[in-house]
Amino acid sequence: MPANFLLDPKAILTAADGSIATKSDILGLLSTCFAEVYEFDPAAVLAGLEEREKLGSTGFGRGIAMPHARYAGLKRPVAALIRLPEPIDFAAADAMKVELVFALLSPTDAGATHLHALAAMSRMLRDDALLERLLAAETSDTLRGVMTDAGERDAA
């Protein structure tokens, strides 16, 4: 995994059921994931993600969204990765529906650190071969394996 942020393997998952149908559903799932894995307040996470989305969609393009926010009390950025079962409209600039959501929470006072973590995520997702493998992953275990392989390749 990249050194710019922590991505706990438990925060890498596939949303296998049909309960995720909207952008709001995605943000809710992310807040639950961050709460369960990193022990954050889900309401505070959701509020931060929703506030950032009000500034403009974090739909990155190419079927990817990168929701992000600041969160008080963090020492370093943390991430979550979700592969959606069906593409969902996220109001991305390229108008493509989102299938992959890579979210980031950063310390409230970490301006440059936050930008470096977002840049690291962006670089990873611009790798066509990696993106293809992530989009093909049908289970959380497969998705975790792809990310572990990517992290090992980056470390070499």
Rank of each mutant, 00 (worst) to 15 (best):
A72T: 14
G56T: 07
L49W: 04
E39L: 15
L115E: 03
D41Y: 14
G59Y: 02
A44T: 13
L115H: 01
H114E: 15
L115K: 02
A95K: 15
I88Q: 08
V37D: 15
D41A: 13
A43T: 13
T58Q: 06
A112R: 13
L46A: 10
Y71H: 09
L104S: 04
V98F: 11
A117G: 14
A93T: 10
A110W: 02
D94H: 05
V37N: 07
I64Y: 07
A110V: 00
P85R: 03
S57Q: 10
A69K: 01
P77M: 00
A93F: 12
A72L: 07
S106D: 00
L125Y: 05
A117M: 06
P67E: 02
G111D: 08
D109K: 06
R70Q: 07
A93G: 05
A103C: 03
L115D: 02
A119T: 14
R76Y: 11
V45Y: 03
L74A: 10
E86P: 10
S57K: 05
F40L: 15
A80Y: 11
E53F: 15
L55H: 11
L105H: 01
G111W: 10
H116G: 04
M121W: 03
A103H: 04
D109L: 09
P42R: 01
R62N: 14
R70P: 01
S57I: 00
R76K: 09
F102V: 11
A43S: 12
L74Q: 06
G61C: 01
G73N: 12
Y38R: 09
V101Q: 01
S122T: 13
F102A: 13
A44I: 04
L55S: 09
S122F: 03
V98D: 01
R83L: 04
F40G: 02
D109Y: 12
H68C: 08
A72W: 06
L84I: 11
P85G: 02
E50D: 05
M66W: 15
E99D: 13
L125T: 07
A92D: 06
S106K: 00
A117W: 08
R123H: 07
E50C: 05
P107C: 01
H68Q: 12
L74V: 10
R76D: 03
I82T: 12
P42I: 00
M124V: 08
L118S: 15
G63C: 03
I64T: 07
T58D: 09
R70N: 03
G59K: 03
H68K: 07
A103P: 09
G56I: 09
M66R: 05
G61W: 01
A110E: 01
P77D: 00
L46D: 03
K75C: 06
V78R: 07
T58G: 09
E51C: 06
G111L: 13
A65Q: 02
S122L: 07
A47M: 00
A72F: 11
E39D: 06
D127I: 09
K75E: 07
T58R: 05
H114T: 06
A44V: 13
D89A: 14
A65P: 02
